[in-house]
Design a protein around this nucleic acid. Structure first.
Lengths: 226, 226
DNA sequence: TAGATTGTTAATCGATTAACAATC
DNA sequence: TAGATTGTTAATCGATTAACAATC
């Protein structure tokens, strides 16, 4: 089950959930084994890259056979820590916050929302899917008393650093930041920024440059799958 | 204004909107110029990296003075193509779709929602913020007739490829995919996946490994900013 | 045994960083 | 002029890919 030989690279780590989801979405009743090459083809990645990534996580791969799908799923989940329940709070119950809070799919990744926080008195005291909405004033104490491990920040940019500080004060060790700002936090706290603006930059730049190069209409393409 | 010397790297491109947002959030009435070093410090990046990135985008930097904030903002926006309005549709009006649809901040990036699409008859015919919700059956024709450039996919994983095909058939040239699947598309169409699962993998792995290494309580840290 | 597939070691590629030259 | 800051050229670093060895 993977030698701890100096840690996995950040980019490789980010590919692992893609493998996991690919394996889980494989059609029912298919073959019980799969090769790294098949996974690579399905995801548009290099064969060697997939093999190297999987070797980091599992040693269930057998020459001529491939990986047992079920075993590989278990190894990936174990490696990523998806088995353990990570207690989570969400701060900022706006549109995006509500969407994340009511999305049930995160449980698959070990993310379990315990409560949400906001400054709006109209929201405080109500609840979303049985998760209470509390005042942000209570954030540090609540996190401390309930052993919260993850904080999700869906607050406006100007409020993000203060909320992050409150989470850190409450002992949270991982922050998922949707606000478009860079946050300061002590080194033991991982701040992962979901940078939608970066994605939009790629889209916008692609359109801009493609427009300049090829103003003609693209070829007819009724279906693009394969 | 930046030599087109062979294109900008993907990673550099993704940093540009971070600079842009940093500059825009600078306090009013501050100095009219800023140095690359100051930006780097504010964002926790390397000085040389910032200088190199900015040199790609602007030639308004002057030794001993730095960059004029306003000019740099304009150059960044121009380079990224944020000036031009990109007509956009959203497919899948669930929780996340609603959140994105009603977030007004995307206009800043040139993203302008024109309409939304869903399969749910209860939604079709209604509207969100003056944007009509239409049947997905009409997706290709609508995109073609309205010159839609960007499609945002917030549909369940199983529906994503079919919707992507419909967007492509409608002449869309950029897709922002929030579904946790890899999509096939012709080469002239950029599919940018917003991979929340990758972010969660980093968070979960951090908690798992940190737990194993340092089970003791972290040091008291009332405030963590600086 | 032969062949498919895994896992590893070496080579390439790209991005970041460090050292330096240019200039206001 | 002197010093701060930009921009560039060379060196380092890390990740990907290619070639190969191992094994079921």
């Amino acid at each position: 089950m993977a030698s701890g030989s100096g840690g996995i690279s950040r980019l490789a780590l980010q590919r692992l959930p893609t493998y996991l989801s690919y394996l889980k979405n494989l059609p029912e009743g298919g073959p019980p084994h799969i090769s790294a090459a098949a996974i690579a083809a399905g995801l548009g990645l290099g064969e060697v890259q997939v093999r190297k990534d999987l070797a980091m996580v599992s040693d269930a791969g057998k020459p001529k056979v491939g990986y047992p799908v079920d075993g590989l799923v278990k190894d990936l989940e174990h490696f990523l820590g998806y088995g353990t329940c990570n207690r989570t709070v969400l701060v900022g119950v706006g549109n995006l916050g509500l969407a994340l809070l009511s999305y049930s799919g995160f449980a698959e990744y070990g993310l379990h929302f315990v409560a949400a926080f906001d400054v709006n008195p109209a929201l405080i005291g109500s609840s979303v899917d049985q998760k209470p909405i509390l005042s942000v004033d209570k954030l540090p104490v609540f996190c401390r008393e309930n052993g919260i491990q993850i904080g999700v920040l869906t607050v406006p940019a100007v409020a993000a650093q203060a909320c992050c500080n409150a989470l850190v004060a409450g002992g949270v060790r991982a922050v998922w930041n949707f606000a478009p700002v860079h946050l300061q936090a002590p080194p033991h706290v991982l701040v992962q920024r979901e940078n939608m603006a970066s994605s939009l930059a790629l889209l916008s730049y692609h359109l801009k440059t493609q427009e300049a190069q090829a103003p003609q209409e693209e070829q007819q393409s009724g279906t693009a799958d394969q």
